[in-house]
Nucleic acid binder design. Structure first.
Length: 297
DNA sequence: GCCCAGGGCAGCC
DNA sequence: GGCTGCCATGGG
């Protein structure tokens, strides 16, 4: 990508150093509501559990360090997870060009990247997310991982529990899931796991479909509606044109574009798809985080 | 006790 | 088709 400034990547003692990160703020990326399996240790210092690994990420200005990562893991996992090869300077320009009204949100959240997360973990996490707050979602994801996921040795030599794969979660009973505090969503998780396990709904199938068909297939899972499907498409399947509308997006979009009038989520989504097109997912994330942390705080 | 949270489903009309 | 009440759980 022409606009991506050169980053220098090196590795020593299982610590990867990425020097020269731009349009990148670790705290914004992790805490903008797209992922749930991490803990804050300090300012711009986080433990991140994903893809069967537990690492510490630490950012100082334009330097990102990943503790507990080999160069192979960076190249094979973290570079794509963090969407490092995408030019966010260009993306932000394009979003603002699509509508100058987004400049405030983009400037406020200028370090956001959209992560490329594991499909199955994203699917289950966002089924859990419905009608829950972000801290509660994080706790449920941690509960499920601790109960059903593999133990791995993390960056500091301590044990972490990674999110279970389909086979592992397929063994879980509804009662065991309820003990993870997912409440009425337990049967939804069972249904989703069965759909993936049986091959009815897989990443491979979804990747072959256009976004409307993929969304339709996802929504055959009980507990997956329009919003959850869009989150899975955006964060777990790389479909950057998806535009999830939750209560926060409804609020900010009604204020910005519908004269403060009560508007159906589907109408808001249709409006946004028309306005932002392929940039929808990015625009949505800047607006969502800005609405939640700044505008309606 | 109330209301709300990155919603969706079943049961109505 | 659209609208309403309900679904667990925890925090403010």
């Amino acid at each position: 990508m022409a606009g991506v400034q050169k980053m220098k990547v090196s590795c020593e003692n299982n610590i990867v150093t990425v020097d020269g990160v731009n349009d990148f703020t670790l705290s914004q990326i992790l805490e903008c509501g797209q992922c749930f399996h991490f803990d804050k240790l300090d300012e711009e210092v986080y433990e991140v559990v994903a893809f069967g690994r537990a690492v510490k990420m630490e950012q100082t200005d334009k330097v990102l360090r990943i503790y507990g990562s080999s160069m192979e893991d960076y190249e094979g996992i973290w570079k794509l997870y963090l969407d490092m090869d995408n030019d966010y300077g260009l993306i932000k320009q394009s979003v603002i060009k699509a509508d100058g009204a987004l400049k405030t949100a983009v400037d406020e959240k200028s370090g956001i990247h959209i992560l490329n997360q594991d499909f199955f973990e994203t699917l289950i996490s966002f089924i859990v997310s419905q009608n829950k707050s972000i801290p509660q979602i994080k706790q449920c994801v941690k509960n499920i991982s601790h109960r059903f996921g593999d133990e791995v040795i993390g960056y500091n030599g301590e044990a972490f529990y990674v999110f279970p794969d389909v086979q592992r979660l397929h063994d879980a009973t509804e009662e065991e899931l309820r003990e993870c505090k997912v409440g009425f969503r337990a049967p939804y998780i069972k249904n989703a796991t069965e759909a993936v396990y049986s091959g009815a709904v897989t990443k491979e199938k979804l990747d072959e479909l256009d976004i409307a068909q993929a969304r339709e297939l996802l929504m055959t899972i009980k507990g997956v509606g329009e919003k959850v499907a869009n989150c899975v498409l955006l964060f777990g399947l790389g479909r950057r044109e998806a535009f999830p509308v939750d209560v926060w997006m409804k609020r900010i979009m009604e204020q910005m574009y519908f004269d403060g009038k009560d508007t159906k989520k589907q109408d808001i989504e249709a409006f946004a798809v028309n306005k932002f097109g392929d940039l929808g997912g990015y625009a949505q994330q800047y607006l969502f985080d800005y609405a939640r942390t700044t505008l309606f705080k």
